[in-house]
Amino acid sequence: MKTVAIKDIRPTQLTHGLREILVKVQFYESLTGHDLEMAIAEKPVPVVLGPRGAPFAIDHHHVATALWRVGIKAMPAVLMADLTRLSYQEFWLTMDDHRWTYPYNAKGQRKSFADMPEHVWELEDDAYRSLAASVRDAGGYEKTTVPLEEFRWADLFRTCLPYPQSEDEFLTIQRRAIKLARSKAAAGLPGFVGKMPSQGL
């Protein structure tokens, strides 16, 4: 598998961070020609083939959605597993066992696998998911290869911080989230880096 039509990509999570997607949209819209082609090539979507051969994304939902929003119809893909032989129920149990799916809504409630949207751009917005990405980008924690790490950080912020209702509130809460990410409360999460270095003498 070298490429996949974005309209055919099935999501394996219920939520995404719309703010994070819009940042990626702005990035892709700033590129043209070879630069855009290279940027797309750098983010192949890892997929698992499921029932009826459908490609299920196990990462890069935000990238796929951003590309769709700027009019890109297909993207590079990497086949991680072929589970077409499994029944619908066996497929989702296997995905769950491998931590290749995250069936939780924006309130952190577990839902049925049948609730998964058909397309990657149909996911529910979760500001805490965007918060997790922005805190990572600001150095609050490091990116790792641990599956679903951003969701674990989002759940910490969901538990401890109020839901941002505006852009100003988001920026205020982001500062609090960075401090929280550097505190002992986050010590067990993937990518934890500890306290910020002290300033001055």
Rank of each mutant, 00 (worst) to 15 (best):
K7P: 10
I9Y: 09
R10C: 04
R10L: 00
T12L: 00
L14G: 09
T15H: 09
G17Q: 08
E20W: 14
I21S: 00
L22H: 05
E29C: 02
E29L: 03
S30T: 08
L36T: 06
M38E: 15
M38D: 12
M38P: 10
A41Q: 15
K43T: 07
P44E: 03
V45C: 01
L49T: 02
P51K: 13
G53H: 02
G53N: 08
F56M: 06
H61A: 02
A64S: 14
A77P: 05
A77H: 02
V78F: 04
V78L: 13
T84A: 08
S87M: 09
L93Q: 15
R99M: 07
W100D: 13
W100H: 12
Y102K: 10
P103N: 13
A106R: 04
K107S: 13
K107Y: 15
S112V: 07
A114F: 12
H119W: 06
E124S: 05
Y128A: 00
D137M: 07
G139R: 03
T145P: 10
P147V: 00
E150I: 02
E150V: 05
F151E: 14
A154W: 10
P162I: 01
Y163R: 03
Q165Y: 08
S166E: 02
L171M: 10
T172I: 12
R176F: 10
I178H: 05
R182I: 02
L189K: 01
